[in-house]
Amino acid sequence: MSLNIPADLKYSTSDEWVRVEGDELVIGISDFAQDALGDIVYLELPKVGDTLAPGAAFGAIESVKASSDLLAPVGGEVVAVNSALDHNQEPINQDPYGAGWLIRIRPDGASEELLDAAAYTTYCEGRAH
């Protein structure tokens, strides 16, 4: 399995990614996470205006086989959610860093310890079979 881990993103140890876009942050799940889950068929996301605390669950993602909490890598206020995923979650599997983005937040400065791409690559390889 060859993993796609873009160099310009930061990653949490619970496999979310964070991209800086101006003074906002975009959050999704990594290629490793979507591959481990398999075909995603259900998604629960917060509402615009909700406040996220770093490390706390902000939603849930489910495949046929498995269920996983989405954990906030950073704190802040939700300013947008990817409503295109409401009825079709395939983009999360097919394009986890693009069309499969989950939420956009205005950060409040609080954050989990995040990994750069090199450290996250090592972290993923350590868990691959």
């Binding site: 398999g38 075909d39 068929v41 495949s63 046929v64 086989k65 079979h129």
Partner: peptide, 22 residues
């Protein structure tokens, strides 16, 4: 195949994907 532990066995959990196989 992706291999997992099941009941003490190392078994394939999926090939092309659970929905596709289903």
């Amino acid at each position: 195949a992706r291999m997992v532990e099941f009941g003490g066995w190392e078994m394939p959990v999926q090939y092309s994907g659970i929905i596709d196989e289903h």
